Amino acid sequence: MRAVTVTPGVPNSLRLVHDHPEPPAEEGAILVEALAVGICGTDHEIVAGDYGEAQPGASTLVLGHESLGRVLEDPSGTLQPGDLVAGIVRHPDPVPCPNCAVGEWDMCRNGEYTEHGIKALPGFARDRWRVQPRFAVGLDPALAPVGVLLEPTAVVAKAWDHIERIGARAEWQPQTVLVTGAGPIGLLAALLATQRGFSVHVLERATTGPKPDLVRALGATYHTEPVAQLDVDPDVIVECTGAPVVVLDAMCKAGPTGIVCLTGVSSGGRRIEFDAGALNRELVLENHVVFGSVNANRRHWDLAAEALARADPAWLNSLITRRVPVEAYAEAYTSAPDDIKVVLDFTA
């Protein structure tokens, strides 16, 4: 069986092995044939040796946390052979903490969670994988070409879930949304915003390539100027770049009682001068909320599946800018200038 692996902590240890063991039964009752695996920034960090943790007793980690597969067998009866399925990435810690105990494992408080293809659980970049029924998300058959987008969509579904919960603190009638960044997370955040009927603005540096047209196809407005120069007074900002200057400018840009959701992860190591007192004054006097959001629980994965089913399939398909056969795995994990979402294709 083929599997894409790394040795965590060892830069450029990416390998395709052809004799990887079949997934053991203890991984889950549902046996799945891999169709595709999406690649994101986290995968690149793991390949670079910056992150990643093999499962106990193993020296290598199977990559892949953005999954799409087809059920081969499910003795539990949860799904049927032939069904499309994705595997939920994060599993609760074994203690469990109060959040993990009630299914909110995306909000784990002690850090003992595990994640497929990232932390102590083998990933989905292998010909066959297993999943427990409660971590298996069935998909509409029509989503076969784009179902691999479910994991990043779940991330933004969680972000919107929390934005709406925070908004309910008062009489909330948002109209305008600003999304900073037009990578996969930013574009999907904009998609979910347009599905909610908001006036959506997306900020991105690129002036060429597919991103401007993808934003406009949603009915949103595309901007390339700095955040501070935008003639927009957003009720909600979804920050998806992690760039420190953009993050700070976004925190200052929200309108009265505005909500700023940070989904981009900063790399750190860069110092910038900033008037923290002015920011504090703005946040307090305008009743702003700034919060971080990462990962997703089962509720968010189900919401994401519904959002994808409502979206234009052609638009979703346009997010996938490269589909690379597994045998050309090294090419898939090498970034190209106009990449949005690169997919490792197990069917080619």
Rank of each mutant, 00 (worst) to 15 (best):
A3W: 04
G9R: 02
A25G: 04
L35R: 10
A36V: 03
I39K: 07
Y51W: 12
G52L: 03
T60F: 12
L63H: 01
G82V: 01
D83L: 06
L84K: 03
G87A: 14
R90E: 09
H91Y: 15
V95T: 14
E112H: 13
E115K: 09
H116I: 11
F124W: 10
V137T: 11
D140N: 13
D140H: 11
L143P: 05
P152C: 10
T153V: 05
V155G: 08
V155S: 11
K158C: 11
A159L: 06
Q173G: 11
V177S: 00
V179E: 06
G183C: 10
G183T: 05
T194G: 00
R205Q: 02
A206P: 01
D213E: 14
R216M: 05
R216V: 08
Q229C: 06
C240T: 09
T241G: 02
V246C: 05
A250Y: 02
G255W: 02
G258I: 00
G264C: 05
S266P: 03
S267M: 10
A276T: 13
G277S: 08
E282M: 14
L283N: 11
L283T: 10
L285I: 14
V290Q: 12
D302S: 08
A311W: 09
W315L: 13
L316T: 04
V324Q: 06
V326A: 07
V326W: 00
E327T: 13
Y329N: 00
E331Y: 03
Y333Q: 03
P337A: 04
I340R: 05
